[in-house]
Design a protein around this nucleic acid. Structure first.
Lengths: 215, 215
DNA sequence: CGTCCGCATTGATCAGGATCAATTACAGAC
DNA sequence: GTCTGTAATTGATCCTGATCAATGCGGACG
């Protein structure tokens, strides 16, 4: 789903001219909800959490961005959510105005972007199903299988799943508490579905996990 | 946010040539999840529920479509969710192929569509926050205020909110059970926040509702 | 090497919403 | 008018996941 994959080389050069590489350290903020969006980003390395906050501090993570992901769709003038780096992050930043002009000038880039947006929308609807109707175990299993899928696309291992985010992040993504997430991890490990390893899990029973997720 | 509002009259004529009006009776199916999408729809009358099902029958409604809404974004080849008419529905149907060709030919229509898609994505993320982190009362109040907003855009009353969908539909949208929805309605009515009327509610304390939703 | 600190795990108890069950309201059929 | 079926409300009880609390673990640093 990389945005740039559809461009001819001359257009890529154009894009290159607009882009400037940026780096963020762990826990650094890329942007905050409501802030006018001066730039959009294409992530090249590291992981980012995207989240919304309630006034009383409750947090819902609406997604994790991995290398290749595009940040800045869901905003017209201001960002609809906050984003910060989970680990050291590298990205290409595009000034909003130049980006906007380029999109207007290159319909097939826009088409690509639109396909990306509808893909994101489909994921969001899948997440609504998860948050509204699945129990804790199903949520965690779905999450692990989704991460597996995403890492696989990036050419990473399909058996050992990297989890750069904290338990709290996972909880805030799945609409649970950190304790429930931890207990559910332990339960999956006890049932020989997964093996918990530093910064990730190893999937021991993909079969069983898949049927848990489907149910 | 109507898709067609950006078109010049000659383009509208083109669109008209593609469109054919369709009607669905209450509970009739517009399309089902996974079915290849032969047509996209622009709703002109009535309300539609959009939902995903789990194999065991659990249902999550991912949105309600009202007049002016566009159906068929979140699919490349197949629909990502099912849709059926809540009440008698009228719509313009566009064959998928013709629609696709027109979009390719008219970049500013595509631009419009993309803006619509990002708007939908923003709503979906707001709904994730609701499903993941809000309690039953907050969910219902948010829902009522959102419906108020949407009806207002369509020029309807801002004090008496029409609710064409059933309690079960509301429950499946808010990730609750019908009993909890019913109890929460009763509680809001008891506290003089709303008055329950046939096919809707009257908002008695917009102030109070707004602060409940913000919390 | 020990202390500290943030994160994760585990246990005990609680509560919000689910589930089970009964009743009510109401629209349509006749 | 009564009958019937569906949707909604209300009550009683249960259970999943939240909350409160304690402990464990590992890396950074003096």
């Amino acid at each position: 789903m990389s945005i740039c994959a559809c461009l001819a080389s001359d257009e890529l050069a154009l894009l290159d001219a607009l882009a400037h590489p940026v780096t963020f350290g762990a826990k650094e903020t890329l942007f905050v909800q409501g802030q006018p969006a001066e730039a959009v980003y294409n992530l090249t390395g590291g992981a980012v959490r995207l989240y919304k906050l309630l006034p009383d501090g409750r947090r819902q993570i609406v997604g994790f961005a991995l290398p290749g992901d595009f940040l800045g769709l869901a905003m017209r003038d201001a960002f609809g959510f906050s984003a910060d780096a989970i680990e050291t992050v590298t990205a290409c930043a595009f000034p909003r105005s130049a980006y906007s002009a380029l999109v207007d000038a290159k319909p097939h880039l826009l088409r690509r972007l639109h396909d990306y947006a509808t893909h994101e929308l489909t994921l969001a609807q899948e997440q609504m199903l998860l948050l509204g109707r699945r129990n804790a175990e199903e949520r965690l299993v779905c999450f692990l299988l989704t991460m597996r899928e995403r890492w696989a696309r990036l050419g990473r291992s399909t058996t050992t799943i990297e989890l750069p985010m904290s338990r709290q992040d996972i909880a805030d993504f799945l609409g649970l508490t950190i304790e429930t997430v931890s207990r559910t991890f332990s339960k999956l490990a006890r049932n020989r579905k997964i093996l918990i390893v530093p910064d990730g899990v190893r999937l021991l029973d993909l079969e069983g996990m898949t049927s848990l997720a489907a149910a």
